[in-house]
Design a protein around this nucleic acid. Structure first.
Lengths: 112, 112
DNA sequence: CTTGTAATTAACCGATTGGTTAAATATAGA
DNA sequence: TCTATATTTAACCAATCGGTTAATTACAAG
């Protein structure tokens, strides 16, 4: 019943707000209110998003004064990337086939 | 309100059953019952998973007799991979830092 | 000690998810 | 036509999701 890391990671990535948060964090740490700023959602909503990201191991949080800065933890992203790389051959093959098809079309086109 | 492609893709990938289906399909087409075989879930459950994968553009389906074979469509996976590549520098940097830290530890260890 | 700011928790809401069983549909073949 | 197989649809269910508002906690600074 406890979802595996990969499922947690992909689930966390399945939300545009959370992806935007990660993108923001890739250029440096930020507090919750800073992260909330670009979105018109409430503070508790941001807290929830950060919890999802934290539970997936995508971010970590420290503590300074009343702030709790968020820091990107890219290892989980790498694991997700490794999973997808498994399919690289598949998409390269299918792109090759598309390319061959287009060339064939072109050949027919100039022959007509 | 309609979720973007990337969100659909990551959401589809956030389930271990669906990831297993994709892995299975990376070695060739398969029918719904063939795909269901390794899991102890009902046929309608498989139908739903296939719908999710299809809506995300991760598979396509044809029709022969009473079968509707599934085929992997790897382009959406590639898009997801492109998104993750954006963070490659981040995780390589953090691995470098880990490496440096471990070397530092080693140096101190052999000095003691 | 009071005030202001940051952040979280609690309680709630409607929509979606992942599963079920039962019924319906589609096709092949005797 | 009748039967068996493949698949989908319908209806339901409990759990999770992404959001809200209101209240609470934590800390710094007057």
């Amino acid at each position: 019943m406890p979802p595996d890391t990969l499922s947690l990671t992909f689930a966390a990535l399945a939300d545009p707000t959370r992806r935007a948060i990660l993108t923001r964090l890739s250029s440096g740490e930020a507090s919750a209110t800073e992260l909330a700023e670009p979105f018109h959602i409430s503070a508790p909503a941001i807290t929830k998003h950060l919890k999802v990201l934290e539970r997936a191991g995508l971010i970590s949080r420290s503590k300074q004064a009343q702030f709790r800065p968020c820091k990107l933890e890219p290892q989980a992203l790498q694991q997700a990337s490794v999973f997808l790389e498994q399919y690289r051959q598949c998409w390269e093959q299918s792109l090759d086939r598309l390319d061959a098809y287009l060339q064939e079309l072109q050949a027919k086109g100039s022959a007509a």
